[in-house]
Design a binder for these strands. Structure first.
Lengths: 150, 150
DNA sequence: TATTGTTATACTCTATAACTATA
DNA sequence: TATAGTTATAGAGTATAACAATA
């Protein structure tokens, strides 16, 4: 994995790695700030985002986020305490609990989505429309790949 | 801020926003995993990364990371306890403490850098060399901008 | 027995407030 | 008085281990 593979130049691109890392940290920082404005952690905000168009069991939601079920229990406890999500026992499997957004949670999620668009606008605005299209294509291609082995 | 500004199409690009957000979360997730393999949090890893080619005062390091000084005290306590960084009183200003990597910390940082390159390789490898160049350019342009108003 | 979810526990990250030492 | 750093405290996020209920 760390051999200098001669036919595989992708790791020899420090500028790209830097740009990706920087971009990631900046954007996650922005997302974290926006969440904080609504008194949410980034993780809580992600929960709302994921549940925006879905109702999920605790286990599946934990898998989505890459967290332990026990971690999710606390997360959902706090979100439910604020009236953002609701738990309900599954009809099919008596062991499962399904989580869904409340109306308040939906409104929260919508507002956050607008705020995110606004916060990212200064960044994307610096690119021309065709550059934005290129960037979208490149990022989507990169993600589609990586997902298959990460 | 939420008016539908007709001459400003940058916020009307949900696919780009999605791609940026997804990319950011995936990459930060990878960085977090790599740090965890070395028993470091992402924040601790960032400290090592920042100190890789610098010696900084506590306050400046806190500013770099966007954290309170009190938060940094704990962070540096733990890193120093593991022998990764060293504190030393500033010669110029008796109030200031300078932080620098130890040899062990340097080795850690080098190893982490290689691991990051290896972890990102599957993603970047899916793009052709010229696409990688384009992506680098686009990301750098976007970052250069946003930094001026975020 | 295996799976779903929760609880208990412990540690890290983070901020705010109060403090000490230096400028 | 203002700045640099630490400590005390508190809350959130996280994991591991032990547990209850259901399958």
């Amino acid at each position: 994995m760390s051999e200098p593979n001669p036919g595989e130049p992708s790791a020899e691109d420090p500028r790209l790695l830097d740009a990706l890392g920087q971009t990631a940290l900046v954007i996650v920082g922005l997302l974290t700030s926006i969440a904080a404005e609504h008194d949410l952690s980034l993780t809580q905000a992600r929960v709302l985002g994921i549940l925006r168009d879905r109702r999920l069991r605790m286990t599946d939601l934990a898998d989505y986020l890459g967290l332990e079920r026990s971690t999710l229990s606390g997360l959902i406890d706090r979100a439910a305490g604020r009236g953002l999500v609701e738990r309900s026992r599954s009809a099919e499997d008596g062991r499962s609990i399904e989580v869904a957004l409340t109306d308040v949670g939906q409104q929260f999620a919508s507002r956050a989505e607008r705020d995110i668009a606004a916060a990212l606008a200064p960044f994307t605005a610096r690119l021309s429309p065709s550059e934005r299209t290129s960037l979208t294509t490149l990022l989507e291609r990169m993600l589609a790949t990586g997902a298959s082995d990460a």
